[in-house]
Design a protein around this nucleic acid. Structure first.
Length: 290
DNA sequence: CACTTGACCTGTCCGC
DNA sequence: TGCGGACAGGTCAAGT
């Protein structure tokens, strides 16, 4: 699912509705995706002190020093339903476009104000963990430990990005920027979009990418992610925000899922090719491999 | 270590 | 309408 812009959109939405709320209960319908080393009884009255994002992981901090981590993988959703949305005859007012709970609902969190947060995941790749907040930061939590820099971190420079790329010198540039240890948060949609913007062929080997080209890719990544966040992410299939609403970025995408359509720069039809096991969409004319 | 491939799941879509 | 196969936003583990 969700790449950085989608998780960021959910993060901003949940921050608005969850901050300061007290948890009262949670109901686990699918235990396999839920991991915690935490006394469930203590969840009562824990207040939410922060909603954060790191890479594609959404983090909710509680005031007892624990954090709830969510990875949505391909089809995960986090939908918040306010109590007032449920008053009228069992029907949400206004109705949520994604009714909850539904058959892919795995966990339901309840809050003191009557609101509920639903974790849905059709393909069951996603997970939830409850861990002590200090363990969220490296080196204690081994998922985030290895994750590379945030694209919008001001301390993360194009030069550092080029340096990080060198660990993957025999790999296609598309595969390299999908590597979360090189840069955090890029997925299949925005790797295609960024490489189109930078005019680099997705199958170009990293060792053939010059430093100037890498700088162009770095800037294009930031630009693609920024525009995608402005459009509240991409809804190719199951992605929705915290209100169950879709994102609109794909209306403005240049290559992703546009096989056969004319390139917006040079009119050559966009082609699709498997690269590193993923579908790459690109313009064979203006994205250079040389 | 770096790189590739298949596995994990369940649904939708497309061609016959 | 039914059936089979390809495909789907992401990691992971196991193989070379």
């Amino acid at each position: 699912m969700p790449e950085l812009p989608e998780v960021e959109t959910i993060k901003r939405g949940l921050e608005q509705v969850l901050l300061g709320l007290s948890l009262t209960n949670f109901e686990v319908l699918a235990p396999a995706r839920f991991h915690h080393k935490y006394d469930i009884g203590k969840l009562d009255k824990q207040k939410i002190t922060a909603v954060r994002r790191r890479a594609k992981v959404l983090i909710i901090d509680l005031d007892d020093g624990n954090s709830i981590l969510f990875h949505l993988k391909m089809t995960g959703q986090l939908i918040y339903q306010d109590e007032k949305d449920r008053i009228a005859g069992g029907h949400p007012t206004p109705p949520l476009k994604t009714p909850v709970p539904n058959k892919s609902t795995h966990v339901i969190f309840s809050f003191a104000n009557g609101g509920e947060l639903f974790f849905n995941d059709l393909r069951k790749f996603g997970w939830i963990k409850v861990i002590p907040t200090p363990e969220v930061e490296p080196p204690r939590f081994n998922y985030l430990q290895a994750i590379g820099p945030e694209p919008f971190d001001e301390a993360f420079t194009a030069e550092q990005f080029y340096k990080n790329l060198q660990r993957r010198k025999n790999t296609a540039i598309k595969t390299a920027i999908l590597d979360q240890t090189v840069i955090a948060g890029i997925g299949n949609i925005y790797s295609d979009e960024a490489l189109w913007l930078a005019k680099i062929h997705p199958n170009k080997k990293v060792k053939d990418v010059t430093q100037n080209e890498a700088i162009a890719v770095f800037c294009a990544i930031r630009e693609s992610l920024k525009i995608a966040i402005e459009h509240r992410g991409s809804s190719s299939r199951s992605y929705v925000d915290h209100k169950g609403d879709i994102g609109k970025f794909l209306d403005y995408a240049n290559t992703y899922h546009r096989t056969g359509e004319p390139c917006k720069r040079c009119k050559t039809p966009i082609i699709r090719q498997k690269i590193g096991g993923r579908s790459a969409h690109y313009c064979p004319t203006c994205q250079s491999i040389h």
